[in-house]
Amino acid sequence: MSDGPADPPLLAAERVTRTLPEGVTLVADISLRFARGEFVAITGPSGSGKSSLLYLLGLLDRPTEGRILLEGRDTAELDAEELAALRLARLGFVFQFHFLLPEFSSLDNVLIPIRRLGRLDAAAARAQAMRLLGTLGLDAAATKLPEQLSGGMRQRVAIARALANDPALILADEPTGNLDTKNAAAVFDIFERLVREEGRTVIVVTHDPDLARRCSRRVHLVDGRVVSDGPASG
C-alpha cells in the first residue's frame, strides 16, 4: 500500500515553521513525508509542538514558513474554503475530547460529515454511518445521545465520524488521553486495523510510549524540532 517511487507521498511537510504573532515558535524547520498505509506516532514531552505539528498537517493551521503538500498538492495555494473542502473529503480528525454534538445521537453525529459532503443520498448515507458504527461495535449505540455512552464508546463514535467520508488520512491528537488502559488499547486496535486492512494512513500524537511502540514509525519532537524519525519499535 506504500507509495511507489514515482508517486508523491500522501502527505509531506517541507521545512515547515509555525511562529505565533507574539514571536513564539511552535515548530521549526520540519520536513516529513508520510506514505499511504503508515501508522505514525508523534511523541515528545509537553510543549514540544506535537499537537501544533498535527494541526499543521491536518490543514487546521497554516505554516508561517515552508509548505504542506497533500497528495502532491501545495495547500498554501488554497483558500480557507478549499482547505475546508479538503478536510471534509480527505482527512479525519480524532481529538483527546470526543467533541460529539451533545444534542444529536451517535448516528446523527456520524452523519454530519457525510451529509455535509453530500455525495450520498439519505439512505446510502445512513447505511454508511450504520456500517461504520457496526464495524466499531457500536450498533446498539446508534440512537443514543453522547451523554448516554461511556468514555470509550464516545471516542469510538468520534473515530466513526472521522471515518465517515472514507478519508485517506486519520489525524489523532492524544485520542487515548481521557481513556483507561483497556479503552486506549481498543482505540489503537482500531487504528491498527484501519492501517492494516484498509490501507489508511494514521498519524497519532501520544505521550504514551507503550502505545507509540504499536505504530510502525515514530517521530520524536523536542522544542519544536524533530530529533528522531524511525521505526517505533526501535
Partner: peptide, 16 residues
C-alpha cells in the same frame, strides 16, 4: 464553542 471548532475541523466553512 467546542462544537463550532469540531464542525470547522470536519470541513464546515466560515460561511456554514
Amino acid at each position: 464553542t467546542r462544537d463550532i471548532a469540531i464542525l470547522k475541523s470536519l470541513g464546515f466553512t466560515e460561511r456554514d
